[in-house]
Nucleic acid binder design. Structure first.
Lengths: 335, 335
DNA sequence: CTGTTAGCGCATTCAC
DNA sequence: GTGAATGCGCTAACAG
């Protein structure tokens, strides 16, 4: 592999001159510049980015820490990041997290080892110590779908979203409303918990007593959601509506309904959460939280922070939209 | 940021000793090792990977070149890569391609600039010159869902898959079978073209004349597929079955059928291609091409090649499975 | 076992 | 305008 020295030799110049040409330094005569470019061409030379990184102290790379792409919402966010980053000169290195210990290891090393110029964290809230570490680091960090008072973050209000979804059902006349979700406590970001809080709040504000039998949570995934939904549908007094913690689970609910012959939305209304593509496919009413946009915003804030570190952490809240589709309907039945 | 020198100073040793400790070199006395570790701890020191990379010539990084995550199949393949790479000591840097020129630029520089130790290319077939370049490079390269005789590749036989899907419909009694897909010529990998070839072959082998009216292609995406399907369904003599070039398009066909009141599978059978999760959701009969596994295999072959470069390029063909679900049915109608 | 030294390939002073 | 020298932080001989 040719080095800058080889180019210099061939072009009969010093390596500094080659470096100048590479970096578009204007103080090089047209003649020598041409000679250098010819040598570069002849040797098929490409500057070694690693050497450049060590020398300049910049890597032109952004590190993205995120869970394995098991959930469509992560993918959607990553797509936004991908797209926004393409507009910049930065590359992206992906750190996939499968366990809390993996997460902690990245959280510990990445802000201190100069491998990346900036860090983007998706759906993985740091604890106070970790956040402190990020905040102190020379490397700017932005959280997407996670909050910490000391760090820049892009957020959606899950509580509000939960309220919105429940409110929608209530306004349709439903009173027997179920909440079905992942476990409320998880090793990563427990968005289900916040959505549940919103659900509870909406009930309360509307004077609807909370029925513990209508609250169920379990392992994530469509299959499990289906099982949980079956349980709900088999209650003596089944709910007339189910609010699922995310779209995938809502689709599981639809599965259960179909198999049990429960007609949606006639006999049962279903609302999801996220606004992933699958929701569109299944004509599911859901809360759109602008996943893609969260990735774009995260990148933009990070890129800005790379130039001038904000003295106080920025906080951006994304809006939430109820998308009413075919799985919800007025509840008119009298029992 | 502390350097190895700071640690050495604090521990009262030479930097070589610190380096030895960092690299678990056994020839360090327990005592000094302990002292060094204490200093590392005290300074919260983390070795600079860039410096290490420059010094060793290894980056412990794999470059993944792939199209923007616009299609679920890319995501699924990336997931496989992500998972398999996590088992190794390698990191992944993502190069997202949105246009042929972007692709060409990565293809040109990446094999020569030592930014990564190995390259994985997903669904982007190189031309002869580019392949030559990869083959000559010191950096091993593996193609996933792309073929070139000079390079290692993980493949599925799209022609065979197209045959398989068509064959399935034929064996169900269908004779009026449509093929609906993306444009057969695309800037990236034209898998639709191969699947179309399989379709034609199956027809031929079964003595079914090809009806040009039953062949339609256009812009990708669910919406467009729906429009194309509508066109087919409105023909004077509409097809009794539609084989779509991929699952997303098949779902578009289902949309069209639903809206036109054409019952699937009673009035129309539909087959997709890919085996993405969405196919499962929509109960779509499809050809599963083991997308996830292709990513895993690609990583494994690459990692092996990192140790010992195969003298002759490896080629792995993934199997294809017809998954018969609810959108296909025997054709018994007599017209 | 351990310290000194010489690069890795480039950018960047500082003289000329 | 241009070249020689220095250093980025680390690893890897090479001595001792």
């Amino acid at each position: 592999m040719p080095t800058i020295r080889d180019v210099a030799k061939l072009a009969n110049v010093g390596i500094a001159t080659v470096s100048r040409v590479l970096n578009n330094n204007p103080s090089v005569s047209d003649e020598t510049r041409k000679a250098v470019l010819a040598a570069i061409e002849a040797l098929d030379y490409t500057p070694n980015p690693i050497a450049r990184q060590l020398s300049t102290g910049r890597t032109l790379t952004v590190g993205v820490i995120l869970p394995y792409l098991t959930m469509p919402s992560y993918v959607e966010r990553l797509r936004g990041v991908q797209h926004a980053l393409a507009e910049t000169e930065y590359n992206m290195i992906l750190f996939s997290v499968g366990s809390p210990s993996e997460r902690d290891s990245y959280f510990k090393d990445l802000p201190r080892n100069n491998l990346v110029d900036g860090i983007l964290i998706i759906s993985l809230p740091p604890n106070d110590n970790q956040a402190e570490r990020f905040a102190r680091a020379e490397i700017p960090t932005v959280l997407i779908d996670a909050y910490h008072s000391q760090l820049c973050c892009i957020l959606t209000d899950d509580v509000k979203g939960g309220k919105l979804a429940t409110q929608h059902l209530i306004s349709l006349g439903h009173r027997k409303i179920s909440f079905l979700s992942d476990f409320l406590e998880t090793p990563f970001r427990p968005s289900a918990r916040y959505r549940y809080q919103g659900y509870r709040k909406a009930l309360e504000e509307n004077g609807i007593p909370f029925n513990p039998a209508y609250h169920i949570s379990g392992e994530r995934g469509r299959e499990n959601a289906k099982k949980m939904a079956n349980h709900l549908l088999n209650l003596d007094d089944p709910p007339s509506a189910i609010f699922a913690g995310n779209d995938i689970q809502a689709i599981g609910v639809l599965d259960a309904a179909r198999e049990s012959g429960v007609k949606v939305p006639d006999d049962l209304s279903v609302v999801g959460f996220d606004g992933i593509r699958d929701a569109e496919y299944t004509n599911l009413t859901t809360i759109d939280q602008h996943l893609y946009q969260s990735g774009v915003d995260g990148v933009n804030i990070l890129i800005d922070a790379l130039d001038i570190r904000p003295e106080t952490p920025l906080e951006k809240r994304l809006s939430l939209n109820l998308i009413a589709r075919g799985t919800t309907q007025t509840f008119s039945q009298k029992t």
